[in-house]
Simulated scan of single mutants.
Amino acid sequence: MESPLLQVPGAVPADAPDQEIAAHYGEPTAEQRALESGRAFVDRSDRGVVRVPGPDRLSWLHSLLSQHLERLRPGEATQALLLSPNGHIEHHLHLVDDGEAVWAHVEPGTAPALTEFLDRMRFLLRVEVEDISDSYAVVTVPEGTEAEGPAFPDLAGTTTRIVRRDALPGLAERLRSAGVRPAGLWAYEALRIAEHRPRFGLDTDHRSIPHEMGWIEEAVHLEKGCYRGQETVARVHNLGRPPRRLVFLHLDGSVDRLPAHGDPVDIPGGRTVGFVGSAARHHELGPIALALVKRTVPVDVELLAGGVAAAQEVVVSPDTGANAKIELRRQAAHRG
């Protein structure tokens, strides 16, 4: 469903899978600076929204997802993964419970498949599963913004809210009247990449497992009971290491293009060792990207990302797994 904010003067549609929202509103760099300093909001209404009401909702989701949810407190936001039986990531959910229902926002276009799977797993439990993406929208706003609907922590200095879709234009106008400008997805993605935060479907592929992405600390509870895909998580954590690891790339700023999603990542000599996930131009760091590479790639070797020279920064340690402590060296976004 195309966002009404695409009708704002200067709005330019983003590329797939985000073509229903704006990439920018004519001033990408200024929008990024404003977002980083708490003076912008981002329309992310192409994301899917799923609601799960019913008295059995938390124990039921606890049995299916990677996160410990049985004692999730109202208003407490968390993340969770739905894994395949072999431990591959099928969905990445941002969750919050409001005391009556669990709300989740997910990647664009994935809510129908998630809802269909969850609906098949209800059996006789007292839960319902609703894909409400047509009625509710996701928007990222400065911390402290008053708005109805569930709230989730997001980029530094921001909060993501789920609001009624028909209320989105009014919220946008109220924010603009208060001096908070719209920022496009390019701004959001640049800051997300700078914070070393992978995005499902862009920085992952069909073989990705939680340890590779650094989601063990945020979206997986290692001491909870059985759930789909748990055997792979436990085996990697206790006995082995994942085959790949997420890296942050500082790209050569003298090149006038960014590598595309899916471009190969090579080491000197031409051997392909991974692929590019997300790439963006950061207003201070310059061109940056996230990539998934083989675990055995030395951490100090220079890479080529889609033919662009790149220096890597560790996000997921090569020693992840085998009961090693995961060290996510997240770099906070610089404030402009």
Rank of each mutant, 00 (worst) to 15 (best):
P53T: 02
L124S: 10
P108G: 13
E195M: 06
V236Q: 02
Q19H: 15
L6K: 09
Q32D: 01
G277M: 06
L171V: 08
G286R: 02
M1P: 11
D266N: 06
E173A: 15
P13C: 10
R73V: 13
P169N: 14
R33A: 11
A111R: 07
D119N: 10
L168K: 14
L118N: 09
Y227Q: 09
R244Q: 04
A279W: 00
A322F: 10
E70P: 00
V106M: 07
Q312A: 14
S278D: 05
D252M: 05
E231D: 09
L222C: 12
Q32S: 05
A324G: 07
A190T: 10
P169W: 08
D266A: 14
V316G: 01
G87W: 01
G184F: 06
R73E: 12
Q7G: 06
L246H: 03
T115F: 05
I288N: 02
E27Q: 13
P112T: 02
T159V: 14
G336E: 08
R39C: 01
A332D: 11
L175E: 05
A280L: 11
L328S: 05
D18K: 13
S208Y: 01
R281C: 12
V96S: 08
T145K: 03
R33V: 13
A16V: 08
A14L: 10
S254A: 09
E284H: 13
E218L: 10
E20T: 09
V139P: 07
D119C: 06
G48Q: 11
E284Q: 13
P74H: 13
V50T: 11
Q79S: 04
D263F: 12
P112Q: 03
L304E: 11
R271V: 06
N86H: 11
S133Y: 06
S135H: 07
A40R: 05
V52R: 02
I209E: 12
V129N: 02
S135K: 08
R57H: 01
L191E: 03
G253T: 04
R122C: 03
Q79R: 15
E327H: 08
L304R: 08
P85L: 09
V293Q: 10
V299P: 00
K224A: 11
A16D: 12
G109N: 12
E130V: 06
G274W: 03
H94F: 02
P142T: 00
V315Q: 07
Q7M: 09
D256H: 01
G179K: 03
A178L: 07
R71Y: 03
H282F: 04
P318L: 08
S278Y: 08
W103H: 11
A187S: 15
A309H: 09
E195T: 13
N323L: 15
S133T: 15
V139D: 00
R197K: 06
A260Q: 07
L93N: 00
L191N: 00
L124T: 09
P287S: 05
W103R: 09
D166N: 13
L58F: 07
Q79H: 12
E100T: 14
V301W: 09
G214R: 07
